[in-house]
Amino acid sequence: MTKFLNWIDVVFFGYRRIYAAGVEMPERPAANIYGVGVTVTDDVANNRTNVAISAGSFDSLSPLVNASSGTYQAKARELVRVDTTAGPCTIALPSAVDHPLAEVFVKVVGDGDSMVTVSAPSGQTIDGANNSHAEGHLVSLRVVSDGSNWLVVSENNPG
């Protein structure tokens, strides 16, 4: 009888049950869906709510940054590609205060060996310093905001 009632519930009212780790959650009139990389949209035409959870860590990919770009203003959750063949480059991080737990990944993709400077906004630091410098071919730097400053979580300098 229970399976029949569940079938009627589905046919007439739609799927209403939510499971977490195989356990049915209590029915509620609303749900809060939040977090980095979560997008919720109302699909009126199909009478449903769409929830998209980003599979990756980044929302955007920068244009190729080089010496003629000037100081490039990185965005939160961005993969910044840098070509140092023509000379040094500077990447300015967004505010750590405005983007808690966001990350920025800077990756040298060209053959150049010039300096890449990653700078924190005024009043903020990168592991206690105003700037972080990297030099060499295929260098990478990943920083994460702790809500007040930037922390280096990985740095690779194969040179």
Rank of each mutant, 00 (worst) to 15 (best):
F12D: 09
G123I: 00
S114K: 06
N66K: 13
N50W: 04
K3L: 08
S145M: 11
V143E: 09
S154T: 15
C89G: 00
G128N: 10
L5R: 13
L151D: 10
G110Y: 08
T49I: 09
A96E: 10
G35D: 12
G56V: 01
S145G: 12
L64E: 14
V104H: 00
C89F: 05
M115E: 06
Q73A: 13
V23P: 02
T85K: 14
T117A: 05
S62Q: 09
V109R: 07
R81L: 14
D42E: 14
Y15E: 14
E78G: 04
N149D: 12
G112F: 02
V51N: 02
T84V: 04
S62A: 14
T117G: 02
G87E: 14
D127I: 04
N157K: 04
V80D: 07
W7G: 10
Y72E: 02
D113N: 08
A134C: 09
Q73G: 07
I8G: 12
W150T: 01
V10L: 10
V65E: 08
I91K: 04
R16H: 11
R16Q: 15
V10C: 04
V38D: 14
A92Y: 01
G14I: 08
A92T: 03
V97G: 06
G22D: 05
T90C: 05
S95D: 13
D43M: 03
T125A: 09
F12T: 08
R28D: 13
S68K: 07
I18Q: 15
F4M: 12
A86V: 06
G128E: 11
Y19E: 15
F12Q: 09
M1R: 11
S69K: 11
R28G: 07
P100T: 12
N131M: 05
L138W: 08
D43E: 07
D146E: 13
N130P: 00
S122T: 13
L79W: 08
R81E: 14
V106F: 07
A120L: 02
R77Y: 01
G159M: 14
Q73S: 11
V118T: 12
K3A: 10
G110E: 13
P121D: 07
